[in-house]
Amino acid sequence: MTIRTAGIIGAGTMGNGIAQVAAVAGLDVVLIDVSNAALEKGVATLTGSLARLVEKGKIDAAARDAALARIRTSTDYAQLADVDIAIEAATENLDLKLRILRQIESVVGADAIVASNTSSISITALAAVLDRPERFIGMHFFNPVPLLQLVEVIRALQTNDATLAAVRELSERLGKTPVTVRNAPGFVVNRILVPMINEAFFVLAEGTSTAEDIDAAMKLGANHPIGPLALADLIGLDVCLSVMEVFLKDFGDTKYRACPLLRELVTAGRLGRKTKHGVYRYA
């Protein structure tokens, strides 16, 4: 199938980024969230992102205006009735995602693909609550969505070949490189990345080195473009903690125990860049 219209559920960091790349690629987009305030904030964010792309010469002003014109917003799930694909991009909370996915399936057409942008939750488990699980798949984008090229395309046990092929083709149309992944906790990137970030918090908590020096060491010694603690702030410390908790539950292995310092920072509301304070402070 050719995907021409996309519904994005969640106008936060990931959702507005997915909406942006879809609109730039020529898809008509319906962006859904629970409140007009959340939608306005999401549109403001992607509008600013598009403006920066124009400033850098990545797209021209006409392309920016055309992309914005392709995006409409709503708090009403009924607006998803005619989309070819609906992508859930809510926070990493299993109960919330299950509720949203059931709501999506109740309004989209029988041939529509339903996808989740989850970074750690089992795609097979999410598919199991749907009446048409063969049309469900994982599309794990990376933050910031307009800049990072990877999409992990995660096939549930129930996902059929046509859905996988359509989503891989869509990913390429969005300017991304799809990597097909079998369903497993954390998939590929987060399975490797988030435990490394968690270990950096242990190193910091033990006083082995400062946050600045830990990040500098990994940038200069491992050739990483950003240090693990700065990356945690970018991802969101709450997201990192949530992923570690999923790993601990699903693998049953104590090596995935979240660092107490990470947990304490999340409890304090120091979630990283989105709250202007995480490991580091932000203006």
Rank of each mutant, 00 (worst) to 15 (best):
M1S: 13
T2E: 15
I8H: 06
N16E: 12
A19Y: 00
Q20G: 06
A23K: 01
A25H: 02
D28N: 14
V30Y: 06
V30R: 12
G42Q: 03
R52I: 05
V54F: 09
E55H: 12
E55A: 14
K56S: 13
I59P: 11
D60R: 09
A62R: 15
D65I: 08
A66N: 12
A67W: 04
T75M: 03
T75Q: 02
I85A: 08
A86S: 05
E88V: 00
E88I: 00
L96N: 14
I100C: 00
S106G: 09
S106N: 13
V107G: 02
D111R: 14
I113R: 07
A125K: 13
A127V: 02
V129Q: 11
L130V: 01
F136W: 03
G138R: 00
F141M: 08
F142D: 09
N143P: 06
P144C: 10
P144H: 09
V145S: 06
L148S: 10
Q149P: 15
E152C: 05
A156L: 06
T159A: 01
A162L: 14
V167M: 08
R168H: 12
L170N: 08
S171A: 14
L174T: 10
L174C: 10
K176H: 11
G186H: 01
F187W: 01
V189L: 11
N190R: 05
R191I: 12
L193W: 04
E199G: 10
T208K: 13
T210M: 03
G221D: 08
A222S: 14
G227D: 11
D233T: 07
L234K: 09
I235K: 07
D238R: 00
C240G: 02
L241H: 00
V246P: 02
L248M: 10
K255V: 11
K255C: 08
C259V: 06
L261I: 02
L271T: 03
L271Q: 03
K274R: 07
H277T: 15
